[in-house]
Amino acid sequence: MKTVTLPPDTALRRLMRRRRDDSLWSRLLRRRDVVLALAVLGALALVALLAPVIAPHDPVDQDLLHRLEGPSAAHWLGTDESGRDVLSRLLYGTRVSLGASLLAVAVAAGLGVPLGLLAGYLGGALDLALSRVADAVLSIPGLVLAIAIATALGPSLTNAMLAVGVVYAPGFYRVVRGSTITVRGQTYVHAAIVTGCSTWRIIGRHVLPNVGTPIIVKVFLTFGYAILAEAGLSFLGLGVQPPLASWGSMLKRAVRYLEQAPALVILPGLVILIAVLAFNTVGDGLRDALARRDREPS
């Protein structure tokens, strides 16, 4: 009666799974591209945090005698049109670009997740109304809406990224609402209702922890889009204001000197490309790992 062994079917499934792996993370880490992308993201985060420590120069220090110079011992990646150190501006720009993207993702998730949970769990008129709003936001081209909001609120990076966050919120809303509808039909949610849990407790303790993984995937994918959006808005002059640098604003200023100093365009462009690729790779890897896990129920 008190022997505790695993049921054979579960045990077999677990054995079979362990061959290709068990936990989401180790499954994820078996993919080399994902490991590389995670390493890149780790490095970017570190740079963003440590920019003041590791930057060789002040990013706003102008040196008009040394404008548009190539790489040298003093300026590893050369100088820009005002003689500022490109490497230092890129390092500080990482901080600005990632920080701004983080803000946008936080706004998007902060709006989308709770509303998605409520709409998915409660359904009815609330769901209908929120879904209409989400559809409306989604039907407007994202960048155009962000430009409109950023213009109305005045050009500043914070305003621009708040706008981007609003634009991306329906993405979170949809993912969370869909997962919540699935979880709401699970027996353990019915069991929680019968136990006497309040709606808030059910959403917080029984639904949210079970829709967590799709949210994480969405965070990574959205982060990639947010970096692009930041670059785009800054390129248009709606983002970070001079003399501060972000990857996008560096690009904007450098275009004018494309023929004299192509590196000024290529370098921030490359960094944007690598960062976006890294976020998307991790997001896709996570999604694949999740899909496989869901095919083999535990």
Binding site: M1, T3, V4, L6, P7, P8, T10, A11, L12, L15
Partner: peptide, 10 residues
């Protein structure tokens, strides 16, 4: 029947 069916491998 007391107990449970043993797992494969065990």
């Amino acid at each position: 029947i007391p107990g449970t069916v043993p797992a494969p491998g065990a």
